[in-house]
């Protein structure tokens, strides 16, 4: 379910009131990124830029950076789940590939961190491509189970290939060095992950409004109807699976570089479920929803520590409550309520 009709393209006269020349230059530079589609991205960027004003210590930067990193992975998964209508219960596996790429690359192969990040994304894309072809022929529960198995398989590999991955205790990840500048500390990573998130969100919004994005949403509604319209269903599904794997991989790389140490639990089943929960809680088919979902699931456990033994119970209750009262997820439900109220 999308928040608003994203396929409505504004007419030229609705373009920014910057004067005709500026407007056309704007359009030429940003191509399909029309102004209305960029608005939420700009809001996210402004919030990311302003949020540190409220942060009294590095701990806040760290929590926020984690929100952005998980939001990035959730946005990728949301493209697959919310827009293309395919489920994946093994997405943490791709996070794991990205995470271990930036650990194994520099440590065992002498590849610099940034190149390892790109290599991890490429490996994730290839793995998603190869695995996706057979797996995406499945539907519904069968697809869920297949992706689940795939995720478990990757987690087992990370745990057992101890010579490469350090086994269950994990391995340390060398700091990312960019142009002689060592990227370290919560504050630095806040900005790095913030930029990644903004870029990821912008690309996602762009993708959704592109012909491929419309094809995706058509598949979500009805595969048969989509194929009648001439959409290559298998190819579109595979493409979106690969894209969402790249999102997860980059997020995993960021997480590993940020923490400086990686253990297989970054790739385990619980993390996959957490990602799915972020997407569903925030709202399927809402990019901003993924950010909200990630915020809730990363920040809430930190808030609830004051409850000590009841922490997990309350967390579960909050999630249940949200799903009962805001059925389409936080962002779409609130958006709908607003629309109804305005009318």
């Amino acid at each position: 379910m999308s928040v608003r009709p994203l396929n409505e393209r504004p007419l030229a006269k609705d373009m920014p009131a910057l004067g005709d020349r500026a407007g056309s230059a704007w359009r030429t530079i940003l191509g399909p990124l029309e102004r209305y589609r960029l608005t939420p991205v700009i809001i996210i960027a402004v919030l990311i830029a302003l949020a540190p004003l409220l942060f009294p210590s590095a701990y806040y930067y760290r929590v926020a950076a984690l929100v952005y990193i998980f939001a990035l992975a959730a946005i990728g998964l949301n493209l697959l789940m919310g827009y293309a209508g395919q489920v994946s219960l093994g997405h943490a596996g791709f996070m794991g590939i990205g995470a271990y790429a930036v650990a194994i690359g520099p440590v065992h192969l002498g590849v610099p961190g940034w190149l390892s990040l790109l290599a991890g994304a490429a490996i994730s894309a290839i793995v998603a491509f190869v695995v996706g072809r057979p797996i995406l022929r499945l539907k519904g529960h069968y697809l869920a189970v297949a992706t689940l198995g795939f995720g478990l398989l990757l987690a087992i590999v990370f745990t057992n290939e101890a010579e490469w991955t350090g086994g269950p205790d994990g391995m340390s990840v060398p700091r990312l060095v960019l142009f002689g500048w060592s990227v370290r500390g919560s504050q630095t990573w806040y900005w790095v992950s913030g930029v990644c998130l903004v870029l990821g969100a912008a690309l996602a919004f762009n993708l959704i409004a592109s012909p491929a994005g419309r094809a995706m949403r058509a598949i979500h509604d009805s595969e048969t109807a989509a194929s009648v319209l001439g959409i290559d269903v298998a190819r579109t599904k595979l493409m979106i699976f690969v894209i969402s794997a790249i999102y997860a991989s980059v997020a995993g790389s960021c997480l590993a570089l940020f923490n400086g140490h990686i253990t297989p639990d970054a790739a385990d089943f619980l993390t996959s479920i957490e990602l799915v929960a972020m997407v569903v809680l925030g709202g399927m088919g809402s990019i901003v929803g993924s950010l909200v979902g990630a915020s809730v699931l990363v920040v809430l456990p930190q808030v609830l520590t004051v409850l000590h033994d009841y922490e997990h119970m309350v967390l579960g209750l909050v999630i249940m409550g949200v799903m009962i009262y805001l059925r389409s997820g936080i962002v779409p439900s609130i958006a709908m309520a607003f629309r109804g109220w305005r009318r």
């Binding site: 608005t39 939420p40 949020a51 909200v292 809430l300 607003f338």
Partner: peptide, 22 residues
Amino acid sequence: TSHCQSCFARVAAAAFALAVVA
């Protein structure tokens, strides 16, 4: 569009407010 801008802003603001309470 304008409804949605406000709701996005509100939800995001709520998320950060939550972080502050932490």
